[in-house]
Design a protein around this nucleic acid. Structure first.
Length: 865
RNA sequence: GGGCUUGUGGUCUAGCUGGUUAUGACGUCGCCCUUACACGGCGAAGAUCUCCGGUUCGAAUCCGGACAGGCCCA
């Protein structure tokens, strides 16, 4: 047990946080697979290992850590695991940058190893940051998606979904760089401005404007706006493609701009993104005119084998020759280019792998999940119901989970590995048996890899120890915490995969956090120079202040605009609490005898009732993930009820040796003990330190409080007591009296109510307090009048003094009744309304008193003792 | 362009199942070093609750529209 001297005069967060970090052990937060306690499993988001934690992570992890700590105190067997979502383009790019290579310069496996090395180092740094912030992560259940133990599950899930008919292959448009001969992600597309020629030519009698004449052989339709009168006769017709002489349909689409060019557009597969949309929505043919090397394909007739640029010139000159090229005009345009070699990207059709989306499965699972806040569910449902395309899961990259499939080189049969052999890399490993169809021993491994979301969307299965086949015993998990920016990706895909693999929802509830915006209200970005890092914040105010900032910054789901104000306020609250504890312990330790377990004094019962209500409020708030509400309730209780009111009320008792001192000691001990427990999920370091001084134990081993001191009468009368004392202090203040100066006699009339404050009010105000339950019998005496010079002055000017003197001379009865006219120097003068106001004083039994009212109560103060 | 969402004193924010003197914090101003805390206490000033229209006896709160911000998607 510590002594009062242990409480330093100021709270040293840096020292305290360092010390408690050393005290906690990883084992304190392990999930117990054998426990009989109810489980609470958090499907923690696996961050992308960039190497550093940003403030958005901090917010997200504080939210999770609060639930984790709270649920442990409520008796749950909590799992708060930590994952790492490793695969992704940025790592490939970073590796290329670090080593000064492109990924095709080194063997595939060597490049993948470079990515793994970089990722391991980044994870190491981020793990360190998470530990410094004291998150109660279960490190025994850490997972890393690039490790074999994890991606063998990703591959198992792929094979199972393939078997169940969820996965298929199909042609699909992809961005392609014909120089690098590789597919390009949208994130890899750079844009440049240039000028091109818009060519107007005759297309079977219709004028068409195009910037890509080389794609004429890929034309699959002509589109016009449905309301364009110039073309309404074309409806339902077919046209013949010039130079190539094959028929294409005319389609109508709202998206055609009648003002652009001639108002008629040729749709080619694929000139741009709009072509892809039209191709899909009008169900058009696919004609590939350009191959992966940028060479014209066999459908291009005499142009076959030309480079796209040569073909363009050739077609334009042939158009000119046959007289169908009308005019050409310059057009500024923005073209997508490969960010490495600046070659304009082509949209080519390539074989891709897809996951079938079954909206009804997702909708039904989503409605069984509790959403916090509720409206976030709408986003997912809207998205799901308007899904047009399935989920394309193949990527033409290197650092990702390989698609575990081979194809027979002779007959094309798809060969799958057996689950026991997973994980495999089909570009390295070979099937163990000849082709079952043709007996060939020659195979081609699939070189495409899986979308990263295929890894992370089985996280709830991975953390519950999925074996790749049967639904785990601890499935579904209890909570998915994540940001609203990835509802359409991570939440959506996880639900989809969970339904496909287990026919169950992945979680009971989902808690959606907002984004952190900079002090200027905009998204944090280097270019805006509004980035705040967690390190910066912790250095200046400590981890607990950061945690409070995150907790009260905004309601769950709302974006938080960062402000130092909240951090400063958080830090000040800790200082205040520290002083409350310091002072209370000082008093308690003078004599810590506790006589009764239910204090009888009004102030004690009042505080305990308020405390019980606060516990209930915080409990309700945490149960519904309303962290801001909970912390505000704690702060309000501690600062207002406990410090400003209760402590002031009982100081007199604490300094005394009255028997009722024991009640105050009991109440203080209970309040401090309870506050430590309530604060434990929010500010674990601070709560640990205070609780240790209070009891010598560890707060993380304690239960959540449940108090039943609710007492409506004590609540009401105690509120009155607190207000009365407050009013009397203000009265002293206004009268220029020191707060501890003797006040005299105060009679407090509370008609119909009997109040016994045990002497607290009297000791606190240094007054003689008399509570009376009868009606006050007051004599009202008109003691003075005040004049309104705004009326008197303009009305009487020079006579004003004389008028006032005359009014003053009137008997009190007339003044009180109101004066219409008055006689001054023999003439009657009328007095306007509002010229003066009577001032009354009051007396009780002939003695003059000052009056204050507090609600229905009346305070009569007789100065002088 | 579409879906969801937000718009409250100088700043951030609570309230938003309709009726409150519209909450709190920071900032500002005044007084106070009262046996923990001046990172404190007491008090004051400061809001046409984005704008327009509607429902209602009554709207910050419900409905419609406009404007502005955020996220996601085209």
């Amino acid at each position: 047990m510590s002594s009062p001297e242990d409480l330093t005069k100021t709270y040293d967060y840096a020292e305290v946080e360092r010390r408690w970090l050393d005290q906690w052990r990883d084992e304190d937060f392990y999930f117990d697979w054998e426990s009989a306690k109810p489980r609470y499993i958090i499907d923690t988001p696996p961050p992308y290992p960039t190497g550093r934690l940003h403030i958005g992570h901090a917010l997200n992890w504080v939210y999770m850590d609060i639930v984790a700590r709270y649920k442990r105190m409520r008796g749950y067997n909590v799992m708060f695991p930590q994952g790492w979502d490793c695969h992704g383009l940025p790592t490939e790019v970073k590796v290329e940058e670090i080593h000064g290579i492109t990924k095709n310069d080194v063997p595939r496996e060597e490049f993948r190893q470079m990515c793994r090395d970089l990722t391991r180092e980044n994870i190491r740094m981020m793990r360190h940051s998470l530990r410094l912030m004291g998150f109660s992560v279960d490190w025994s259940n850490e997972y890393i998606t690039m490790e074999e133990s994890y991606y063998s599950l990703t591959q198992a899930s792929f094979l199972q979904m393939l078997k169940n008919g969820y996965i298929y292959q199909s042609e699909h448009p992809v961005n392609y760089c014909t120089r690098c001969e590789t597919a390009i992600a949208f994130a890899e597309v750079a844009y440049s401005e240039n000028t091109t020629l818009l060519n107007y030519f005759d297309f079977d009698g219709v004028e068409i404007a195009t910037t890509r004449p080389e794609l004429l052989a890929a034309c699959v339709a002509v589109a016009v706006h449905p309301d364009d009168n110039r073309y309404h006769t074309l409806k339902g017709k077919t046209l013949t493609v010039p130079l190539f002489s094959y028929p294409v349909p005319v389609v109508e689409d709202e998206a055609v701009d009648p003002a652009f060019g001639s108002g008629a557009v040729m749709i080619c597969t694929f000139g741009d993104k709009q072509d892809v949309v039209w191709w899909k929505s009008h169900n058009l043919d696919l004609r590939s005119a350009i191959d992966q090397k940028g060479v014209m394909t066999a459908i291009c007739g005499k142009y076959t084998g030309m480079k796209a640029k040569e073909c363009r010139e050739a077609i334009l000159s042939d158009m000119k020759e046959s007289g169908i090229l009308k005019t050409q005009e310059e057009l500024p345009q923005r073209v997508g280019t490969c960010w490495r070699c600046q070659t304009p990207i082509e949209i080519l059709s390539a074989r891709q792998w897809f996951v079938k989306v079954r909206p009804e499965e997702i909708v039904s699972a989503a409605s069984e999940i509790t959403w916090y806040p509720e409206h976030m569910q709408t986003r997912l449902l809207n998205w799901t119901q308007q899904m047009e395309w399935d989920w394309c899961i193949s990527r033409q990259r290197l650092f990702a989970t390989p698609i575990p499939v081979w194809f027979c080189s002779d007959c094309g049969e798809m060969i799958l590995p057996v689950p026991e052999d997973l994980p495999i890399d089909p570009t390295v490993d070979s099937p163990k048996h000849p082709c079952p169809v043709c007996g060939s021993n020659s195979f081609a491994g699939e070189t495409d890899v899986l979308d990263t979301w295929m890894d992370s969307s089985i996280s709830p299965l991975a953390i519950t120890k999925w074996d790749g086949k049967t639904t785990p015993a601890f499935y579904p998990t209890q909570l998915r915490p994540q940001g609203h920016d990835i509802i359409r990706t991570w939440a959506f895909y996880t639900i989809l995969r969970s339904m496909a693999l287990t026919q169950k929802k992945p979680w009971d509830g989902i808690m959606i956090n907002g984004m952190v915006l900079g002090e200027d209200g905009f998204k944090m970005s280097k270019s805006r120079n509004n980035v705040i890092t967690p390190d910066e914040l912790i250095d200046r105010y400590g981890v607990d202040a950061l945690r409070q900032w995150a907790a009260v910054g905004a309601a769950m789901g709302s974006d938080i605009t960062f402000t130092w104000n909240d951090v400063v306020a958080a830090s000040r609250f800790q200082t205040k609490m520290w002083n409350i504890v310091r002072f209370s312990l000082l008093q308690i330790r003078k004599d810590d005898s506790v006589s009764s377990d239910r204090p009888t004094e009004l102030a004690d019962r009042w505080l305990l009732s308020k405390l019980s209500a606060t516990v209930q409020e915080v409990t309700d708030a945490l149960d519904s993930y309303q962290y801001d509400k909970g912390l505000k309730a704690i702060r309000d209780f501690a600062w207002s009820s406990l410090a400003d009111n209760y402590l002031e009320l009982v100081k007199g008792r604490l300094y005394s040796d009255l028997p009722s001192r024991a009640g105050a000691v009991f109440t203080l001990k209970t309040a401090l003990d309870t506050l430590c427990r309530l604060l434990a999920p929010y500010t674990p370091f601070f709560a640990s330190e205070c609780y240790y001084h209070l009891s010598g134990g560890r707060i993380i081993d304690q239960q959540w409080p449940g108090l039943d001191y609710i007492d409506p009468t004590a609540d009401e009368n105690g509120n009155l007591l607190a207000s009365v004392v407050g009013q009397l202090r203000k009265y002293k203040h206004d009268a220029g009296l020191a707060l501890n100066a003797p006040l005299g006699h105060v009679t407090i009339y509370t008609p119909g109510k009997t109040i016994d404050d045990g002497g607290d009010a009297g000791r606190t105000t240094n007054a003689e307090i008399e509570w009376r339950s009868d009606e006050p019998h007051l004599d009202r005496v008109l003691s003075d009048i005040t004049f309104n010079m705004g009326i008197i002055g303009p009305a009487f000017r020079k006579e004003a003094g004389a008028v006032m003197q005359a009014i003053r001379a009137l008997p009190p009865e007339s003044l009180e009744a109101g004066v219409d006219t008055i006689s001054v120097n023999g003439s009657d003068i009328s007095i306007p309304d509002g010229s003066y106001a009577p001032v009354f004083s009051y007396a009780i039994e002939g003695e003059e008193v000052d009056l204050l009212t507090v609600g229905d109560a009346l305070l009569a103060i007789r100065k002088r003792a």
